[in-house]
């Protein structure tokens, strides 16, 4: 065992990279759930974003445009879910699962021509002065822009939900859609917008996988990241900053267990590598029981179908 082989600077730096996809997916889903909708289709939207972003980057040569297209693709797919659940009043759990299956299939169809290609690399920001700070520089300030955009989105989401009128309306709709409706807020419209935002974020997270973290396209490459993002929201009890902490924790476990293995530390890595999934299962179980849901501070109307009467 040789712990000195683990470079804490590189470990923390790669932790931030590993956490970004689930951070983006998680913060999007948080907004969706805050509006009272449970969308289990994160995995499907994520992988659709992964291939859409990848394809767009290959065709145009611009990673920035690729990320944009990925967000649009994720949002477009989520509109299907919005249509089903908000207008056709379909069951949200079933529709979300269907969206995941559909996204996985659709992405593999779209990806036929893109296997084995290499995307142009996403440039890393090299912030003068800041990136030269010893230790903190390489850990915090030498990443690609998406890492910072992810953090900025978390901050913006937090501020919007907490301080703005839009955030208040969104929360009102999520807590009690009947009351919000009685006050004259457009429940369906608010929810559709939230679903769209969630889709766009999931798409960005997927594109981060295919453009930065891996970088290439392989069928099924999200490999459960969408589900972890979903669990992250519950784990964070619907608070934006906690989503970020959770994402770094989950991302950190992944990177740490690989580091420990490579350093030859005798720990049961199986348990470490399965821990994000175990936490995921536990929170999903808690979430599915009515009492647990309330105890965790879940939006009261989450998952309930809204039908305006009278």
């Amino acid at each position: 065992m040789d712990l000195s082989a683990i470079n804490p600077v590189l470990l923390l730096a790669s932790l931030m990279v590993a956490a970004t996809p689930i951070l983006l997916g998680g913060i999007g889903e948080l907004v969706v759930e805050k509006s009272g909708v449970l969308n289990l289709g994160v995995e499907g939207m994520m992988i659709t974003g992964a291939i859409a972003g990848f394809a767009a980057t290959i065709e145009t040569g611009s990673p920035a445009l690729g990320f944009l297209i990925a967000a649009v693709a994720g949002a477009a797919l989520s509109m299907l879910f919005a249509l089903l659940t908000q207008y056709a009043l379909a069951n949200q759990v079933a529709s979300g699962l269907a969206l995941t299956l559909f996204g996985l299939g659709l992405s593999s169809l779209m990806g036929q021509g893109y296997v084995g290609l290499k995307p142009p690399s996403t440039p890393k920001l090299d912030i003068p002065l800041l990136s030269d700070i010893p230790f903190l520089g390489p850990v915090l300030f030498q990443h690609d822009p998406m890492v910072y955009i992810g953090i900025a989105i978390v901050a913006a989401t937090w501020a919007t939900l907490k301080y703005s009128r839009v955030g208040l309306v969104l929360r009102a709709v999520g807590e009690n859609h009947d009351a919000a409706h009685a006050l004259g807020y457009k429940v369906r419209l608010v929810r559709c917008a939230a679903i769209g935002f969630g889709g766009a974020m999931a798409g960005l997270g997927g594109a981060y996988l295919s453009l930065v973290r891996v970088p290439q396209w392989t069928e099924g490459m999200t490999a459960g990241a969408g589900w972890i993002a979903l669990a992250l929201v519950v784990f964070a009890s619907w608070k934006p900053w906690r989503v970020m902490v959770g994402a770094y924790l989950f991302g950190g476990i992944t990177v740490l267990q690989l580091n420990l293995q490579a350093a030859g530390v005798k720990i049961p890595v199986e348990y470490l590598s399965m821990s994000p999934y175990i936490i995921t299962i536990i929170v999903l179980v808690i979430m599915s029981s009515g009492r647990g849901k309330a105890a965790l501070g879940a939006p009261a109307s989450m998952g309930r179908i809204f039908h305006a009467t009278g």
């Binding site: 683990i6 470079n7 790669s14 590993a18 290439q216 690989l258």
Partner: peptide, 20 residues
Amino acid sequence: IYDWLDPAKEADAAKVLIEQ
């Protein structure tokens, strides 16, 4: 990595090994 195919984890593993 306890899987035959997981590109993200394979990529992470390669990164870790290179870092070490």
